[in-house]
Amino acid sequence: MEIIIDIDDPAPLFSQLMVQIKKAVLCDRICAGDALPSIRQLANDLDLNNKTVAKAYRLLERDSVIQTRGYRGTFVHPNAKANSTIDLNATVLAKLSETIEAFRDKGVTDSEIRIAFGTVMNNR
């Protein structure tokens, strides 16, 4: 199973990597429990910085598409297929837009929303 990234593509490299791995899961080219290459191996093969691959892996782990099992390596998550269909970014954006619209309807200004958002995020 091969993945292809395009360095001239406007999409960020980590994002291309995430999309490729999710596509591989959805097309059953990699299945739950399958081992994935180490960060260093993938970075060397694609001639990318280790940090780029590490970021893609971290976000895929956050989305429960992959899971890291300590020194044993990285594997495809048991629920990877279901989780690959959800675009967390889009979900977060939709939810936020909905909330912001509701605040505006109630007369809250944008700067008040920004301050409130910052306060909530900082208090987490």
Binding site: M1, D6, I7, A24, A35, P37, S38, Q41, D45, L48
Partner: peptide
Amino acid sequence: ESKRVADLQPR
């Protein structure tokens, strides 16, 4: 070449 290919199989 702008496209780079890698194997998703660990070695």
